[in-house]
Design a protein around this nucleic acid. Structure first.
Lengths: 196, 196
DNA sequence: CTAGAGATCGGCCGTTCGGCCGATGCGGTC
DNA sequence: GACCGCATCGGCCGAACGGCCGATCTCTAG
């Protein structure tokens, strides 16, 4: 009703489950699809992948509308190809704007969800592990290369030092960060924004 | 005018440059500040850092409103502490919603900007290996644990399988992702959002 | 019924990792 | 001059990793 009341919008179909959604969307090819996540037969993420996922030739614009504000849903939806993510408490104004944005190829995400997305995009360096002892600049060089998957040998070559030196630095990093292997170094580097 | 017409909003000040913005915002402490980026004396990003940047004790909510749709502005604004980013062509509806969201501690970003942010958050882009072959659910279980720094032995214990099984899965993952060691798996997991 | 994909296991073997010892130089500070 | 943090190197060794082979079991699709 909200959308049909808009002069520039028309609701062309309403369906009861995910399988119907895929069938009707493929038949009618609407400008925008609104999908709930929890639906019978196929859930919203699977429908999204079918209609707009990577590898689909003429992807439709999909806006997810759901009551469930879970991070796994958000990332799942966006990775599946959704161009919008709305919580059902967003009000009619945002719903209309989200559809209009999707039709234009843009994306509108609920403000309460956006604020969490931005933390992942723009987080300044904050160590997840309590770091009483800061890393030296040289140790950070090693961390950055380790986090990109380089072996000790490759790190040594890229920093123009010997393998022994790299291993010494690694030992210091292990002690300072309180981690036990190089993958935990990589995880720390990604979480703290040392690499991105 | 647009904002003052809202029953739940009141414009308490309007200033001519960045220096004034900082002074008035500190004096009046409004619920939300709207800032342009290009301003005399201090630009919007510097003002944002002063009012809402990392390390500020009682940060204000800042919404950037600008005509310049540049990635460096977007990321700069969000890293500086902005809780919203609007383009001036967004229309009055989104402006009102952005202010309302900011007042609630949420964040609204222009749809045309959001669509680019989402590509950075949700698109697993990997030049050498565009993943023609998706990982199975079990392989993803292994990836998630590996990315958190678990050893093969620990992964085996947590998944209730043998060490051999973990190594077999790892071999498949190496082949599918086109990587050479477990740290590159971790890096892929963080980049693609499999872990966060 | 058959073929294939996926999950599960085992063994062998060379490479890499990480811990632990020690050592040298270089630049600061007290 | 003495001390100390930092970067640089070396050797040794056990554990972990990763490649390569083959194998069984289940489930699904044709």
């Amino acid at each position: 009703m909200i959308l049909d009341a808009q002069p520039d919008m028309e609701v062309v179909a309403a369906v009861a489950d995910g399988a119907e959604a895929v069938a009707e969307a493929r038949r009618l090819r609407p400008d925008v699809c609104l999908l709930d996540i929890r639906m019978p037969k196929l859930d919203g993420l699977e429908v999204t992948r079918a209609l707009a996922g990577p590898g689909v030739e003429n992807p439709l614009r999909v806006v997810i509308v759901t009551t469930f504000d879970l991070d796994e849903y958000v990332y799942g939806a966006l990775r599946s190809g959704a161009t919008g993510f709305l919580l059902k408490d967003s009000g009619p104004t945002l719903l209309i704007e989200a559809v209009r944005a999707a039709a234009a190829g843009d994306a509108l995400v609920s403000p309460s969800v956006t604020v969490r997305l931005l933390q992942h995009v723009a987080q300044p360096r904050r160590a997840p592990a309590p770091m009483n002892d800061p890393l030296t600049e040289r140790e950070l060089d090693v961390v950055r290369l380790i986090a990109r998957g380089r072996t000790n040998q490759e790190v040594a070559a890229e920093l123009f030092v010997s393998l022994s030196t790299v291993k010494t630095h690694l030992g210091s990093i292990f002690a300072k960060l309180g981690v036990r292997n190089r993958v935990e170094i990589a995880a720390w580097a990604w979480e703290s924004g040392v690499v991105s």
